[in-house]
Design a protein around this nucleic acid. Structure first.
Lengths: 249, 249
DNA sequence: CGACGGTTTGAGTCCGGTCAATTGTCGTGG
DNA sequence: CCACGACAATTGACCGGACTCAAACCGTCG
């Protein structure tokens, strides 16, 4: 809101969504994964306070500057987290998928916006509820600290990418990290799904749409990847891609 | 170690330092600031396990890939935290000064290296000791979580800088953030000290030394800053600098 | 003083950005 | 079924900001 108010940005603003309470099993299961030591009744307390929501693709459901009253759990779909400059320049700081948590930062207001890439199911918890739980379950706090720590390491890796890598190295790194993620979650193999647009990828890698597209083509012509559709690619030479990503060629 | 081993990097490797135990008041005071609820005897326990060290300027005292056995508290001086690519490209992910903590990440091994910019006094604690304390003092954990959260927000701001800002905008942002920090810690006014070299600044901002230097000159000619010495600048038009930093001009 | 590391400045190049046009994809409705 | 519109992706021609290479300058210290 704050960030949007002072801008003539061409990107469109959010629509405020109405949140409805709704029961859901996978949601509680996810909360469980944060801390297996939590008692069932406490889980229930958290579950009671949560609300569910479907968000359409392209909808912004969290705005930089808004009071940080809730945190979110992506149940299904993909979202992008980003920051805007007054003139509309955009930097995507991360893509989040099913199972990821959003909004855990302990600041007064959100320091980023979030928008659905695909139709998304999300689960929203009040932060106060969480903080009360944290007081009772220190293990949960440790778990969150570990998560934050991993995110921080990832952020530093991304700084390396944005500050020092070439366009080719950036895209190779990105595709491989997506593939690694898919592998970690069971699926995978040599195909990677790209739910986001070329413009999103460019805004994540600090490039323009045109450059992103050109590098896709270039990697294809070099025999590193096959482009089945714009949103689905397949690795045909993962080794070369790995070398590219780490800057060895 | 790991990162250094596979590289023919022109940058020099670390010298292993000998750590000696030593008593120090400011160190305990700093630990206190992490959690005021800690008992004196517990503080003593942490204090007993710590060791002190002087590190010379230019010395690397922490290597990416090394087992993450300790965390650090900068007592005096300035350090840089960075990552290297196999061919020697470097990205500085942060500068740390007196009072800052380093190595709190909860990973098995460090994901970055750290080198002294000026002669430095640091205080080293074993991580196991800290973790035991964390179990006893949940408030401490909450404090760490808040710190990690702030760092994460800063990291995202830096991604915006590296991915989307021009050279001028990057330097303006950097100078202002340094000034803001000095102000937060009492000192300040319109002068900013730059203990790091132009090359360090460039490696932090994703530029080359030459570009960094040129932009300094350009800002001076535009009347935004005065360069008293290479390591000490003064703001002469902070407003214009602010506008530049946020991309408004 | 001279040596050395850091800084500044200059000349020329190039990677990625800009602007513009074309192609491809998909959903809608006649 | 195809025509159409909207939007994403690709491709081409050109441009420019930052990089590269190189030389000169400066401050510090032995």
């Amino acid at each position: 809101m704050l960030a949007m108010a002072m801008t003539d940005s061409p990107r469109k603003a959010a629509s405020t969504a109405a949140w409805r309470a709704h029961a859901c099993a996978s949601c509680a299961a996810r909360a469980l994964s944060i801390c297996s030591a939590m008692h069932t009744e406490d889980l229930g307390r958290l579950a009671a306070a949560r609300t569910h929501q479907h968000v359409d693709a392209g909808e912004t459901f969290l705005n930089e500057g808004d009071a940080a009253t809730h945190f979110f759990n992506i149940i299904e779909g993909a979202i992008k987290v980003f920051k805007l400059m007054p003139d509309g320049r955009r930097q995507i700081t991360g893509f989040l998928f099913a199972g990821d948590l959003l909004g855990l930062a302990f600041n007064d207001s959100y320091t980023y916006s979030a928008e659905a890439i695909t139709p998304v199911k999300i689960c929203r918890f009040p932060r106060r509820q969480l903080e009360r739980l944290l007081d009772e379950f220190p293990k949960m706090e440790k778990r969150l600290l570990a998560m934050a720590s991993n995110e921080l390491a990832a952020a530093q890796e991304q700084m390396m990418l944005l500050g020092r890598k070439t366009a080719h190295e950036r895209l190779a790194s990105f595709l491989l990290s997506l593939a690694r993620r898919e592998r970690r979650y069971g699926r995978g193999g040599d195909a990677v799904q790209l739910p986001m647009t070329r413009t999103d990828i460019a805004d994540y890698l600090g490039l323009t749409t045109e450059t992103a597209s050109r590098v896709f083509t270039s990697l294809r012509k070099r025999g590193c990847i096959e482009i089945e559709t714009a949103n689905s690619i397949r690795f045909s030479d993962r080794d070369t891609l790995e070398e590219l990503a780490s800057g060895l060629e």
